[in-house]
């Protein structure tokens, strides 16, 4: 175990961006303080609170998962981090700026549960599409070359001419990831990207995502409801609970990188899974019993 951990650490050290990871403890790449989100209730003057007092920070090059039951606001939190939802309270910074600004500078890449590809465009055009919209000054050819490169990265160069309807679910999701990566973002924000895939494809895609992360050194925030996925991929897992939606715990995953299918068999993996399972169960219980906000700020402090 110890020898494995040290070799893993050695490999991490070789990754570009890993040396910045330690420096980023001082200045996190994604930083959210006191986030609360309220939505107006239809046909009434009441507002429903979907997130309260969220503190979160992600170091540069980190891999962080948000896990929790449906309706715990994890997707909402991701949208707040991406600048798609303006929080009612609190502040978010991505790469030291407002997320909308960061997004406009193509620092944030988004991947959703559905691949959301354009059915009338082939895989290559789907990959180049967003970059084309984002950066109009860039020459068409350069955009296409970049798209081709990204398709190669996700292993789909042979499928460039195929339309989404002709691709499998896993391939479509690879195209969506390539499209996000084409922007060359610093942060990849993924909302249950493998949620619609079958178990086998899902595991394949999980390994694929880990490989992409290790090769590119992007900061990744992953929303998931799979315990397996969260432990296997992340350096840190934020556990969320409902009623009210909050982060109840931040758990560091005691496993080094690189990880592979052997990782699933490690005692540390099983241990981390068990801990996560208990946390989720506990969060579920307390959430139902007491309807008041938990101490989510403790989780935020634990990271620093």
């Amino acid at each position: 175990m110890t020898s494995e951990a040290t070799t893993a650490a050695a490999v991490i050290g070789e990754r570009p961006g890993a040396e910045t990871a330690s420096a980023a403890v001082v200045r996190p790449h994604i930083h959210a303080v006191g986030i609360a989100v309220e939505f107006p209730v239809r046909r009434s003057h009441r507002r429903v609170r979907v997130l309260s007092n969220i503190n979160l920070s992600v170091p540069k090059g980190g891999f962080v998962s948000l896990i929790g039951p449906s309706g715990c606001g994890k997707s909402t939190l991701l949208q707040v981090l991406a600048g798609l939802i303006t929080p009612s309270e609190g502040e978010v910074q991505v790469a030291g700026m407002h997320p909308v600004q960061a997004s406009a500078r193509r620092l944030i890449g988004l991947v959703f549960q559905d691949a959301t590809l354009l059915p009338w465009k082939n895989a290559l055009d789907n990959v180049s599409f967003l970059l084309d919209v984002a950066d109009k000054s860039r020459p068409r050819r350069e955009v296409r070359d970049r798209a081709r490169e990204m398709l190669r990265l996700v292993g789909l160069e042979h499928a460039a001419e195929l339309r989404p309807a002709q691709l499998s679910g896993g391939m479509r999701q690879r195209v969506a990831i390539a499209r996000a990566l084409a922007l060359d973002p610093e942060v990849l924000m993924m909302d249950e990207p493998f949620g619609a895939l079958d178990a086998i494809t899902r595991e394949e895609m999980t390994a694929f995502l880990l490989e992409i992360w290790e090769r590119t050194g992007k900061t990744i925030v992953l929303v998931t409801h799979s315990i397996d996925e969260a432990v296997f991929l992340s350096r840190e897992v934020h556990v969320m609970a409902t009623n009210p939606a909050r982060i109840i715990e931040t758990m560091a995953v005691p496993l080094g990188y690189p990880r592979n299918e052997d990782t699933y068999a490690e005692p540390a993996f099983a241990h981390a899974e068990l801990r996560l399972r208990r946390l989720l169960k506990e969060g579920h219980r307390t959430g139902h019993r007491q309807g008041k906000p938990g101490r989510a700020d403790g989780a935020g402090k634990a990271e620093r």
Partner: peptide, 24 residues
Amino acid sequence: SLVALMRSVGAGRTEILRRVQIPH
């Protein structure tokens, strides 16, 4: 989600209409 994606890279209403909604 597609609209969110377009907005995230700074596309306006008309551009979303032209490039995504009309073909769709």
